[in-house]
Write a protein that binds this DNA or RNA. Structure first.
Lengths: 281, 281
DNA sequence: CGCTACTGCGTATGCTATACACATGTCGAG
DNA sequence: CTCGACATGTGTATAGCATACGCAGTAGCG
């Protein structure tokens, strides 16, 4: 998908009204722009129902199972009827993503500090991704523009606003964190999926992985891997490390937030030293 | 892809010889397992040539343009001939990924410190991803198992080995860093692609983005975003911030490595305090 | 020499998105 | 009130995809 040229403005319903935004049709629909001329027969359908059906398919059988025909069957119309509501399949995907992302829960008050806020935020998106893993298979074509994505962005920025970080830095932290969560969940769900397709559990897969790696690598060419394998700390069936440090997700999250915290501290120091900002060059 | 059941062992060439590994056929091929009975006509083709042709297509027109027919045309055979060398399209993708990843360059000596090493490592994978963006569109189904991926893993671990980090922690850092690079490059190439399809430049797209976001958000519902937009620091045509801090990529990378460094320091302190390792429970 | 495994290929199946033409229904303008 | 403009849902057609299957020809081993 997203290979074709233009998508060519949906025939009727998604007629281009605002036009100049240059937004993907789906995004305009999601923001509630686009009005429709009140002519013709009553509509037997609406966009949310289509999106809901599509999400149901994706949740149950993955993004690969989402085809226009399949979704149409879900809402009880012919395949082509969907194109009266949606400009293309790509458009439907955008709408699905926005609907699945939904609004964030309020989160802790800003007074609790940026770190608590961002931790909450991260766990929030994590939950969304885990509930709808197919979201991560939809290629990103723009910075967040759909309504719910922007709400999540707002939430994160509300915690970063009072930290003294510059605008660029706030955005940097935002993408760093968002990207981390996305990547981490993507990885674990992909592997989990492959695991359960093989009929095994997480732990089984992990054990098998180390065994395999051991078979494939020799001490001369792969000394560091060999050392790791011989450390005896792997296979990790909820070993001590896990309980002490939390899951891999929390480990990485803590490292990132530590790094951000350190950066803020350094920034504070530098400004306290009386240097005008940017005078260091 | 990866939706079907088994892939069913390639007819002849990819015959299952090692068998018990449970590896995807492509990985076994890549490691050079799998021998072939020297019967029948001379082969007019070999796997590397197929993979090369497939990579050429993907580099030029994206992963979406890689179809068996297209690749076959590239090497001058019929579509079905490929299946004598490759078990399935998924298999071909695995081989493409391994070939494109290639071996890492040697990198700085371990004596220069883990941070220099990991920075080199990150920039290395970054370059690979930027040269072959389609790699990131291939779903990950297992931890690194293909030969070249394992080489990259070895390189990173060689820098982490002497840091005092536990095995789990080393792996945590590895996936954190690898995931970061992947995510970051994926984001920027996706947006870049969308940009040039619209016929615009990066900067144009960014300016347009902020303008759009401004139109879509109002001060009451999106105060933090509004504040950001009004800060005047955005639109960033190589502003001061960029020169001071480096690109967004380096910003995130530095934050992560800072966080890892801090973690190592804390770990060192804790051990210097005389606590036996693991005595804290 | 002949058997057997292996080669490359043509065909067929069932899936996909979506362009287009059509009959039907409904509102708004005259 | 009437009629035309336009929206609706649908069926059909096209072009692309992966890949199962069968067939004819070839090279090496017994």
């Amino acid at each position: 998908m997203a290979e074709h040229e233009e998508g060519a403005e949906a025939a009727g319903a998604a007629e281009d009204t605002a036009g100049e935004t240059g937004l993907p049709a789906g995004v305009e629909t999601a923001w509630g722009l686009r009005v429709r001329a009140p002519r013709g027969p009553a509509r037997g359908l609406d966009v949310p129902r289509i999106v809901e059906a599509a999400i149901a398919v994706a949740d149950a059988e993955g993004l690969g199972a989402v085809s226009m025909g399949r979704v149409a069957k879900g809402v009880g119309v012919s395949t082509m009827a969907l194109y009266r509501y949606v400009a293309s399949k790509d458009d439907l995907l955008i709408l699905m993503e926005d609907a699945a992302v939904a609004s964030p829960s309020p989160g802790p008050p800003v007074e609790d500090g940026w770190r608590a806020g961002l931790e909450f935020w991260s766990q929030g998106i994590r939950a969304v991704y885990e509930q709808h893993p197919w979201i991560m298979r939809i290629p990103i074509s723009t910075p967040p523009l759909s309504p719910h994505s922007v709400e999540w962005m707002e939430l994160a920025l509300s915690y970063l606003a009072g930290t003294g970080l510059s605008a660029e830095e706030q955005l940097g932290v935002l993408t760093l964190l968002g990207g981390y969560v996305r990547q981490q969940v993507s990885l674990s769900t992909d592997i989990q999926a492959a695991a359960s397709a093989d009929g095994g559990t997480w732990e089984n897969v992990e054990r098998r992985y180390w065994t395999l790696l051991d078979k494939l690598t020799d001490r001369e060419r792969f000394p560091a891997i060999t050392a790791l394998l011989e450390s005896g700390e792997l296979g990790g069936q909820d070993g001590a490390e896990v309980e002490e440090e939390g899951t891999a997700f929390e480990f990485g999250l803590a490292r990132i937030l530590d790094g951000v915290e350190l950066h803020m501290a350094r920034r504070g120091e530098r400004e306290a030293e009386g240097e005008g900002p940017g005078a260091s060059s």
